Computed example of a mutant assay.
Amino acid sequence: MKKPLSFGLSALILTAALAGCGGSPGTSTIAPSAATSTAAPTSASPTSSSTPAADGAEMKVASSSVGQIVVDGKGMSLYFFTKDVKDSGTSACTEACLAAWPIFTTTADSPSVDGVTGTVGTIASPDGKKHVTLNGMPLYYYAKDKAPGDVTGQGVGGVWYLVSPAGEMIK
């Protein structure tokens, strides 16, 4: 008897978390390059040891409806959050926000890139992982992007934007 109530409560919490991180998604997609893997990222909570690019933060460039964008080694789109402060060493996306916008992490001291011209670095995440940055801004995935080429997080809430190879927000 309590199951419908718990489902409703869970849906309400998820809706509130998404609203706090920027509202509803767009519907754009990119065409992955031939070199892009077709495997979707694994679902992982921000505190899990398994994230979409846990084996190393390979970053590359892909074509999209908004031009060239930065993606991970599997072709998954990466995003900036306008509430982050450049070179602050911290992320403004915390707690419930991270469920919708998981961080892009690496195990490498020097993440590898192909075609990305911005300055790549890392900051410590709250759980001790290496959160990848580009030009001093933390990078994130969008949980609703399920396959390489998805860019449904572009412009969400007017605060989440795709990233150019030079490390600029694409608005």
Rank of each mutant, 00 (worst) to 15 (best):
I103W: 13
T106R: 05
Y141S: 07
C93G: 01
T47E: 09
K130D: 03
G23D: 14
G23W: 02
G121W: 08
M169Q: 10
D127N: 15
A39P: 00
D145T: 07
D109M: 03
T122H: 01
F80V: 01
A62F: 02
Q68P: 00
K74H: 13
M137W: 07
W160V: 14
G89Y: 11
Y141M: 08
D87M: 00
A34F: 06
T105G: 00
T38W: 01
L98H: 00
K146N: 09
F81Q: 03
S112Q: 12
V116M: 09
L5S: 04
V85Q: 11
S164L: 10
P165D: 15
G89R: 03
A39Q: 11
T106N: 03
A166D: 14
G149L: 02
L12P: 00
K130H: 09
I13E: 02
S10H: 02
T90E: 10
V156I: 12
T105I: 15
C21L: 09
G26M: 12
G26L: 11
M169F: 04
A35S: 13
M76I: 15
M137P: 00
S164F: 13
K86I: 05
I170Y: 01
A57S: 12
M59E: 04
A31W: 02
P148A: 14
T94P: 00
F7N: 04
I123R: 01
S63T: 15
T152W: 02
G121C: 06
F81W: 11
M59H: 04
E168G: 05
L98A: 06
K74D: 14
G149T: 10
D87P: 00
S49T: 14
I123D: 05
P41F: 12
P25A: 13
A62G: 03
C97D: 05
T47G: 05
D114Y: 01
T94I: 06
T117V: 09
F104E: 04
S88P: 01
G128I: 13
A99Y: 02
L18E: 09
Y141D: 07
S43C: 02
Q68S: 15
W101H: 06
V163C: 04
V113S: 14
A147L: 06
T105N: 02
I123L: 11
L134Q: 07
G167H: 05
A124T: 15
S110Q: 10
M59I: 15
G158L: 12
S28L: 14
V156N: 07
G75M: 11
K60T: 14
I123E: 04
K146D: 13
A16S: 09
A92H: 04
T82S: 15
T107S: 12
T122A: 03
K2F: 08
A62M: 08
S49K: 12
I13F: 10
A34C: 01
A54L: 08
D72I: 10
S49W: 08
L18Y: 07
M137L: 15
L162F: 08
S10W: 09
I123N: 03
V151Q: 11
A92F: 06
Y161D: 01
E58D: 09
S28N: 10
A147W: 04
A92C: 02
D109S: 15
A34G: 10
G155P: 01
T107A: 11
S24A: 12
A96W: 02
K3S: 03
K60L: 13
T27A: 11
M59A: 13
D145Q: 03
S112T: 14
P138W: 07
G89N: 07
T122I: 06
D114M: 03
G8D: 05
V132C: 05
D145V: 11
L14M: 08
P25C: 08
